[in-house]
Design a protein around this nucleic acid. Structure first.
Lengths: 334, 334
DNA sequence: GGCGGCGCTTGAACCGTATCAATGCTACGG
DNA sequence: CCGTAGCATTGATACGGTTCAAGCGCCGCC
């Protein structure tokens, strides 16, 4: 495997010069540069990343710790991150915590060793967050949390106003004439779930009647569970609309209701959250609360890069985006 | 930032000893070891990954170049990879080529510099595959292709028999009494698409009447396009079943047909491919050809690790899995 | 008592690169 | 003709580990 020394020897220059050709080509004489470039090509030389990083003390890739890659929401966020990173020639690597705190801890420990340019993370849960992220932060590795489960973060953060999302949902359903409304989601310690519920409840006020269908998880499977519960209720006490804590749940509810002969939206209206592509593609296209996913990712990446590039003082910021409502058939007028 | 030297000084030993405590603890005296461990803890020392890797010449993380993270299929494969890697304490990092050849090339170049333990990849396309992967291979970095678009690979490969998948689909639809059958998929240079079509066509023989609805891409959107085409046909010439090149397409077809008042499976049966979770959760649960996704990933990872651990001779292998059929409502008897 | 062997530790070499002070060279102005 | 400025190149050093031959002290054996 040719090293920079081999290149130097072949080109008849010193290693310093080769390094200059590679990193600051403008400061080496044209003729020398060409000789070096020829040698590089001839040997098929490629720089050694570890050596560079060791010397430089910093990497050039940012790490994203995704909470759950099976949720398309994160994939879209990821796209935003990659867009921003690409512009400044920074690489993005993704790892998957799969909502597993132990696994997340392992990954973060690994990053303490690898020292990426920065870490973008949706932490698994609030408890222990401080300890798990502390190692990175104290080592000077910028950490930006996005869509965090915790209300207060250590460092920069970007999120979407979930209380507002809940309010949008509530107003929309009231507008459509619904008064008996269900909220399907959980677990409740999760901030997003709590906030969305809270926003909804706040808007309904005394006029509405709010039923909560608690779920252990936000997946299609638990959504079906919720659908089953709804379908089991007598018509006169069944909510006429369900607000689901995310689109996966909404899809499950939709499927179960449909299969049990209930019509959406005529019998029960369904409103989801996240506006994932699959939601629009459902049999009854789902209305949903849309989060600016790519923008979320892009902004998070930009904040991370900014922090990484300002060695001195850096003001941590907290950017909050606003969700909006996407109306589709599942909440149309009966 | 404390280095190994600081630890050595604090513990009153040489750096070599500290290194031994970290890497071969059994060969250092108990008392010394404890002193070193105490020093490590006190300083909060963590090893420098780049330095280790520079010295060792090899990394301990394997890289996965995913073709398209928006397709849940790959996420499941990824899970299999992570399972296998976890067992031997190897990390997995994911990057996303997004079906973009230029991007893939950039990522592979980066890996030539970073020298991961190995690279797992579904190449964007067959053409140019040799050049893009050649750099890695000639540098001794094992490459395993999975679900590759090319029929012949350089190195180990794991894939699923798509021709068989097509045959299973064809037989099933014939069994159900269908004779006018459509295949929706594309682009055709893609091996998977070609093979699935080929398998189907082979089984139909002269009895059946096969219509091909070519698509530029396998997404929900193009699936809707296909659905529109189907719905536009007069009843007597409309195929009574569609075999879709993947589940995303099938979902699009399903949605469009349903919205245009056609019943599934009564008017048109739909058969998908991949058996992603969303397929089971569709309004009309989709029948689909299932690929052993996690196993695909697990096997690919194991082959990669094996190659990485056999410095001498290593026989490249090609493992082919068999798909099977999952029957659901979308192809039930009318 | 000397010697061999064993268990543990040491110190130095090395991995491949970036950086920077020092050096050499040229050309130019005084 | 000398001093100097400017440019291109060099060579040494540091980055933080791992590894390995060599050293050291101690014990048991002959």
């Amino acid at each position: 495997m040719p090293s920079i020394k081999d290149v130097a020897r072949l080109a008849g220059v010193s290693v310093g010069t080769v390094s200059n050709v590679l990193n600051r080509p403008e400061m080496v004489a044209r003729e020398t540069r060409m000789r070096v470039e020829a040698a590089v090509a001839q040997l098929g030389y490629v720089r050694n990343g570890s050596a560079r990083q060791l010397r430089a003390g910093r990497s050039t890739t940012i790490a994203v710790v995704a909470l759950d890659l099976t949720n398309p929401f994160f994939i879209d966020v990821l796209n935003g991150v990659e867009t921003a990173a690409q512009d400044v020639d920074v690489n993005v690597m993704v790892v998957n915590s799969s909502k597993d705190a132990a696994r997340e801890a392992r990954l973060l420990r690994m990053f303490e060793e690898e020292r990426p340019l920065g870490v973008l993370i949706t932490p698994v849960n609030a408890s222990g967050q401080r300890e798990r992220l502390g190692g990175l932060i104290s080592r000077g590795i910028p950490v930006v949390t996005f869509d965090s489960s915790s209300r207060h973060s250590y460092g920069c953060a970007v999120s979407v106003d979930d209380v507002l999302g809940g309010r949008l949902a509530g107003r929309h359903l009231l507008d459509r004439g619904h008064r008996r409304i269900a909220f399907a989601g959980g677990p409740f310690p999760v901030r997003q779930v709590e906030d969305r519920h809270h926003g909804l409840a706040g808007v309904l006020g005394p006029d509405g009647e709010l039923t909560v269908i608690p779920l252990p998880d936000l997946t299609v499977a638990t959504g079906r569970q919720a659908g089953k519960e709804l379908a089991g209720l007598a018509r006169e006490e069944r909510p006429t609309a369900v607000f689901c804590a995310n689109d996966l749940v909404a899809m499950g509810v939709l499927q179960e209701l449909t299969q049990r002969g209930l019509r959406v939206p005529a019998d029960v209206a369904i409103l989801g959250y996240d506006d994932i592509d699959f939601a629009a593609a459902a049999a009854v296209p789902l209305s949903s609360i849309r989060q600016p996913r790519e923008q979320l990712g892009r902004t998070a990446a930009l904040m991370l890069l900014e922090e990484a590039n300002s060695p001195g003082g850096h003001e941590h910021r907290h950017v909050v985006f606003q969700p909006d409502l996407v109306e589709r058939v599942s909440t149309a007028h009966p």
